[in-house]
Design a protein around this nucleic acid. Structure first.
Lengths: 249, 249
DNA sequence: CAAATTCCTGCACAAAAACGCAGAAACCGG
DNA sequence: CCGGTTTCTGCGTTTTTGTGCAGGAATTTG
C-alpha cells in the first residue's frame, strides 16, 4: 500500500468518524504504529487533522457540538457494523440494502478487504467507492429521492441475475409474528429480490427495532440466517430468535 | 511496444484502479523499471497522473484537482452551463456524461424545470437528486473509481435502450482532424452509446480543450450537432467548426 | 505515585528514485 | 545508401525515501 493511499484512507476515516485511534489504524492497515504516527504527524502539519495523544481528531470536531453519539444511536450501529464485517471474507460477492446501519458498515470496512459489493443505495455506493480494494457494482434504475436508492423493475431484474454469497439488510422492524417488515413498497420489493439472490441473509437491526413491526412484510423469520444487534447474543430479548433457528451475533 | 502505446496502457490502468505500482507495471509490460519511471514522470508533467514513491495515483485522490488553470476555470464552466441549460425544455429526456462541466450544469438547473435525466455519473446523479422536479434514472454497472461513472457492457446496453431527446457530453478534447477524443477506453464506449441514443448531441468544452486531442476517438465532427464553449460564437477559434456545419453557441 | 500507554530519537535495512552512460533503433538530409 | 543526429531503452552506482525496531522520555490513568 502506498503512503499517499494510506494517508488518504486515514483522512477519510477521520472525516467520517471525527476521531481515529492510532492503535486501531495500525491493525486495520497492518503497519507498525510508528508509521501511523508519522502519517498523522504529516497530516497534522498540513492542517488536515488535529493530532492528540493516542490518535487524531477531525478539524470540525473542534467546533461546538458533540454529535457523534446519541442522536442517531451511532455507537450501537458501530458495534453492529463490526460484527457484520466479521462475516465478510476476501473474494466474496456482497449485496447490501440502504440505511444508516449499512452505511456505518460501509464506513468501517477494513482497507485490505478485497471483495465485490453490489448495491443500489447511493450513500452506500459513495462509501464503497472510497475504499481502495473494493469493486463496486451499482444497480441502476429510477432513483427514489427519499430513500436514495434505485427502485423499479429493472433494479429488481438485475438483482435477480446476481448470485451473491451474502446479503446484508438494514432492518426497520423485526418481530416473531411478522418476520421482517417495512413501510415502503418499492424498498420491500428490492429487499425480497436481494434475499432470493443470496446464499446467506443477514439482518442488521438496533435493539429498539426488535419486536416492532411495519405494514408490509419482506419475509418470514425462517428466511433469515443471521441476526445482528448491538446486544450480546445471549440477551434475553433475542432468545426467541435463537430458538427459531436464527444465528444471533 | 511503442512508447505512446505503453503510456496509454498506464493511463488506462490508473483510470481503472486509481493507482498503479511501478513494480507491477514493469512486470506487466516487461520493460525495465527505469522506463516505467520515465513514463510516469512524463505523464505527471502533463498532469495526467500524480507520481508518488512506488507508483502513481489518479487525480481523484488529491482532494481538489486544479487543472493547470489556476482558478479552477469555474467561471467559464458556469457560462457554458447557462448556454447548455437553454437547450433543455420541460418534459425532455436528457442523457449526460460525467465531468466537471456537466456537474456545473447540474448545479445550475432552474428549480422549476421538469425533466428526466439519465446518467451513470455519480457526482451528477447526486446533484440531480437534490433537484425538486427532476426524475432521475441511474444507469447501473461496475463503477470506475477514477471517473466516478458506471462503465461496462451492462451500462452500454441500458443506454442503447434509451431514446433521449438530447445528450450532453463533457468533452476532454476536440479538434478538426480527430473529432472528439478521450483517454479512457471505457468512457469512450459509453459516450459513443450515448450519442447513438440521442436525437441531438451537444458537446461542452472549455476553450483550452478546443484544438487538442487524446489517444482514443469517440466520434467524428459530423456526429456533433452543437458545440458550446465559454467564448462568443463568432470567436475566430470556433470558425472552422461553424464551417464544418456544427452549430456553435 | 505507580503502571501502562504512547511518543520521540536514532539507527538499520530495503525499496525506489536519480543520475550518468552506452548501445540500439529510428529519423533525416543529402 | 550513408553518416550524423536524436530518441529510446537498459544497466550500474549513488542518493533519497519509507519502514520497522529498540531504548528511554513523556503522558495518561487509576
Amino acid at each position: 500500500m502506498l503512503k499517499k493511499e494510506r494517508q488518504a484512507y486515514i483522512l477519510h476515516q477521520v472525516n467520517l468518524h471525527n476521531k481515529v485511534l492510532s492503535s486501531s489504524l495500525c491493525i486495520d492497515i497492518n503497519v507498525s504504529e510508528d508509521t501511523i504516527r508519522r502519517d498523522l504527524q504529516e497530516l497534522a502539519e498540513e492542517g488536515k487533522v488535529i493530532k492528540v495523544h493516542g490518535g487524531a481528531l477531525s478539524h470540525s470536531f473542534n467546533d461546538v457540538h458533540f454529535p457523534s453519539n446519541g442522536v442517531y444511536s451511532q455507537h450501537q450501529k458501530k458495534t453492529i457494523a463490526q460484527k457484520a464485517i466479521s462475516l465478510i471474507d476476501n473474494g466474496m460477492f456482497v449485496l447490501t440494502s440502504g440505511g444508516t446501519t449499512i452505511l456505518e458498515m460501509a464506513r468501517s470496512l477494513p482497507p485490505q478487504l478485497k471483495a465485490t459489493f453490489i448495491s443500489g443505495s447511493i450513500p452506500a455506493i459513495l462509501e464503497y467507492m472510497h475504499h481502495p480494494n473494493i469493486d463496486v457494482i451499482l444497480v441502476g434504475d429510477r432513483i427514489s429521492k427519499n430513500s436514495k436508492i434505485t427502485v423499479g423493475t429493472e433494479a429488481i431484474a438485475k438483482i435477480k441475475q446476481v448470485k451473491a454469497d451474502i446479503c446484508f439488510l438494514g432492518t426497520n422492524a423485526i418481530d416473531l409474528q411478522h418476520g421482517i417488515t417495512d413501510n415502503d413498497w418499492e424498498v420491500v420489493q428490492l429487499k425480497k429480490a436481494m434475499m432470493e439472490s443470496s446464499q446467506k441473509v443477514v439482518c442488521l437491526a438496533i435493539a429498539e427495532k426488535v419486536n416492532t413491526f411495519q405494514p408490509i412484510q419482506i419475509a418470514a423469520l425462517e428466511k433469515i440466517d443471521i441476526l445482528i444487534t448491538e446486544l450480546p447474543p445471549d440477551d434475553p430479548i433475542l432468545k426467541p430468535y435463537t430458538d427459531a433457528g436464527i444465528k444471533v451475533l
